[in-house]
Write a protein that binds this DNA or RNA. Structure first.
Lengths: 209, 209
DNA sequence: GTGCCGTTCTGACATTTGTCATGGGGAGTG
DNA sequence: CACTCCCCATGACAAATGTCAGAACGGCAC
């Protein structure tokens, strides 16, 4: 389809905190005639700075990076470089992440289980202005559906995520203990969990926190 | 140091569930004259089968894989192929994993933040019969120290990891509820946590579960 | 404007949990 | 052989948590 010699190559930014993966990826993508890696980054902020400096056509971002995760970088990038398409790659594809990513204007979302060959094709797809979402991740996201929790319930559940007692959560959220317990109770029943700790785990699995 | 042409190349097994990483890694390591990738695997059991079939000199294993993790594969491998050196690569280097790995006879332990160049050197080091442990991970492991928990306490804490109530844990462990609570109580106080859920989190961070 | 929903609180109650004292049995060490 | 440590258990008490009813306020929709 895309003839390599006929048009200028696609300029890529690669961001992943794992040097091993980033370097290897750069090497593999460089084998494709129509792709060229113009910048690499190991952290969220670094990715942002590199993008501003090198103006890539497509940014390939890892979902989990120190500093700022891929989705946050994508959000900033959309404001700064509207022409730059964002493609997220991830190891652990939780359903909620996909939704957040799409809301942030991300054009592609793939697990790291794809081959480099396939990734190159997807980069071209995204560069051409189309979207690409891994079918399996998409199915998971659809079956998991939207979070049934209200904003407040989600917030309180997040405060509960590290196992803090109610008193501490109440203090951090500036609420009374009774209110906190009510929110947790409703969150637990909405998620069908046995207690708030299991609820946290469930919400995590579905990507709702 | 190691002259490439003077001796037969080091035969490698690569195991990682992320196709992207595995393929890229294989390509990069293939650039080294004295290294040759003879087998690849995406899961623990597959890695084991591949190792038996191809008898590699060095097995490069991801710590987290479906089926059986890198350390478990290493344990089986030591029994089956004593001549095969095991090198573990990991994204999230929790202190306890390193200890477990060394006990399983693993010869090298490195984070994925190293470069491919460096990895190649480490593979040679390991193949030569030496050990290599990433200095930073080693420092973490030393500062985290040994688990203060007894075998039973650890086991019960693991059952508690998904937020199950005591009754369920007692049933799964075939213990009385009182006993379970006693174990949890002592685990919590040993770890200096506020409750068992925070204790689980702490033990996870230190790699003791 | 009436009703619905989310937020916030209080108070009361049942259940779960954490803690402690105490006891017996087995394994290992001095 | 006494001592210590881990395993397993029971019972009792205190504290934390889960659940429910009720009630006030603001926003949004019809």
């Amino acid at each position: 389809m895309t003839s390599a010699a006929s048009r200028p190559p696609v300029r890529l930014l690669l961001a992943d905190d794992e040097h091993l993966i980033r370097g290897a990826l750069a090497a593999l993508l460089a084998l494709e005639d129509d792709l060229v890696v113009v910048a690499e980054a190991a952290t969220g902020p670094e990715a942002l700075a590199m993008a501003r400096a090198h103006m890539p056509d497509v940014a390939v971002l890892d979902l989990q990076m120190p500093g700022a995760d891929g989705v946050r970088v994508a959000t900033s990038l959309r404001a700064d470089l509207p022409g730059c398409k964002v493609l997220i790659v991830t190891s652990h594809g939780r359903p909620g992440h996909l939704k957040r990513a799409l809301e942030a204007g991300v054009r592609g979302f793939v697990p790291k289980t794809v081959s480099a060959q396939r990734l190159a094709e997807i980069i071209r797809t995204v560069h051409a202005g189309n979207r690409y979402v891994d079918p399996e991740l998409a199915a998971d996201a659809i079956s998991a559906g939207d979070s049934p929790l209200t904003e407040r319930e989600t917030e309180i559940l997040e405060y509960a995520a590290d196992g803090s007692p109610v008193a501490e959560i109440a203090e951090r959220a500036a609420l009374s203990q009774g209110t906190v317990r009510n929110y947790l109770s409703s969150a637990v029943s909405k998620l069908g969990a046995e207690n708030r700790h299991a609820a946290v785990r469930l919400a995590r699995e579905r990507g709702w926190v």
